[in-house]
Design a protein around this nucleic acid. Structure first.
Lengths: 107, 107
DNA sequence: TGGTTATATAACATATAAGTTATATAAACG
DNA sequence: CGTTTATATAACTTATATGTTATATAACCA
């Protein structure tokens, strides 16, 4: 799944996660997203391009502005993949619990 | 959260995700992990180092072998962070935007 | 129309990632 | 012991990421 590459890679950057956290509060234009960060507008524009490419945000055109908002698809895909790990970890936990239980019948 | 950087970054690589998928089936040594991939042992060793640094796997020492298995902590942290996005996505955007607009009387 | 505003893109520097081969370490084994 | 086996590390190459400044585009406004 090449999409997971892009999605996880996009989420690996703290600035991009902060942008997503901001967008979780609602739509925002590029300049609104630039303002809180100590970074130039082109840098933020490129972060947005990465997020869009990963399917994490969508943008619409409104005059000269490009308001961004969260997109659902990539998160669903990530959740699905992580589910595999989660299930395995639960299984390992059960196994560990079993081992620990077997180890402490004395006492 | 610097840990999220490492965790998401580790998950961005398809080889590392494949390693995790293999470990979801149970513990494996380095050579066991090298075998299915068309890649040299040093390359896999470094992927394992990245996964360990991200808190996604743990290793124990067993003679000359280093069996790896999944670790729970990083996945929990990722889940927690993604929860924020999930909740935002589940919400009706238009209504949320309206609420936020009403909450900001400035300007 | 001409200037300002919002955003994108190009060109560049630097850092980091990911693979390779060669070599080191250290336990196991005969 | 010396050899094999399991793994790690170093040195190197190449590709990609992330930031910068400068500039382009295109809508808006006076």
């Amino acid at each position: 799944m090449a999409n997971l590459d892009a999605a996880f890679s996009a989420l690996a950057d703290p600035t991009r996660r902060a942008i997503l956290a901001r967008l979780a509060l609602g739509e925002a234009t590029v300049m609104e997203l630039v303002e809180p960060f100590d970074m130039t507008q082109p840098a933020i524009s490129r972060h947005l391009k990465v997020l869009e490419g990963a399917g994490l945000i969508v943008r619409r055109i409104e005059g000269t502005k490009r308001p961004c908002r969260l997109a659902p698809s990539a998160v669903a895909e990530i959740d699905q993949w992580l589910g595999m790990l989660r299930r395995a970890l639960e299984t390992n936990y059960d196994r560990l619990d079993g081992v620990l239980a077997a180890m402490k019948p004395e006492k």
